[in-house]
């Protein structure tokens, strides 16, 4: 089966100013390659500053790469022109960030319906209710997002990804700001995105318990992928992270 995401030899660096006119080049990704199969859940783990989030943003076309290529559903997204990248995101990608996922001026239901609306296929009321029901928030469509808890906001973000028919969901520390109960619920829903909806999920996390729900765990260290594990336990992930030190 053709991978849904094909990333090859990604290089990415940032220029950081020190405030004294001397800029410094920081290499964040150094030759990273990664494939994601349809219906596969992949976790990316690694120490702080290892480039996890940058890799996620490069894979999704939010961040341009210095070198290398990224294909999403057969379409090149790296360094794509803004309109083309927006079209790919609209048609194939859903996002869940750690927080501030939702457009604050729109109600919960309007946020869920937004990608479909932007794609020119507005959701019917029934579709909206169904998708909100899948995340347990069927009666919260009219709520202001600012009045919802962090966990509820994440579930709305998952519903938004489900409603948009995104083939792949990129999640950046989706449980990072949540308590254990809400984090578990969000992880259960993300797993269901793969198992029940047949979508792919790529999740960045520093939580090894969370990472272990994935089909495959990728360990990132010193700008490179140093290890890959299939259906690992948290202990196995920790061991690989220790070994790669």
């Amino acid at each position: 089966m053709e991978p849904l995401v094909i990333a090859r030899n990604l290089h990415k660096s940032f220029t950081i100013g020190n405030g004294k006119g001397k800029d410094k080049q920081i290499q964040v990704l150094d030759g990273v390659s990664l494939d994601v199969q349809p219906g596969e859940m992949v976790s990316i783990v690694g120490p702080s500053g290892s480039g996890k989030s940058t890799l996620l943003y490069c894979l999704s076309g939010l961040e341009p790469v210095d070198a290398g290529s990224v294909e999403i559903a057969g379409k090149r997204i790296e360094n794509a022109r803004p309109n083309a990248a927006a079209k790919i995101r609209r048609e194939h990608i859903g996002f869940i960030f750690q927080s501030y996922n939702l457009v604050p001026s729109l109600r919960a239901g309007e946020n869920v319906a937004l990608p479909a609306r932007l794609a020119g296929h507005p959701l019917t009321r029934k579709q909206l209710k169904d998708v909100l029901g899948k995340v347990g928030l069927a009666d919260r469509a009219k709520d202001k997002v600012s009045n919802m808890s962090g966990g509820e906001q994440q579930r709305i973000a998952i519903a938004r990804a489900l409603a948009s028919h995104a083939e792949i969901v990129f999640a950046d520390e989706p449980t990072g700001a949540l308590d254990t109960k809400n984090a578990n619920e969000v992880l259960r829903l993300l797993r269901a995105v793969t198992d029940e909806a047949g979508r792919s999920v790529v999740m960045v996390t520093h939580n090894l318990e969370a990472a272990s729900i994935a089909d495959r765990v990728v360990v990132l260290r010193d700008r490179q992928i140093v290890s890959e594990l299939s259906h690992p336990t948290p202990e196995q992930i920790l061991e690989k992270m220790e070994v790669s030190r």
Binding site: R89, F97, V103, L114, S164
Partner: peptide
Amino acid sequence: NDVSLLSAVGASP
């Protein structure tokens, strides 16, 4: 930030 949120959900420039 508004631009970023809209871009992430696929709004074209």
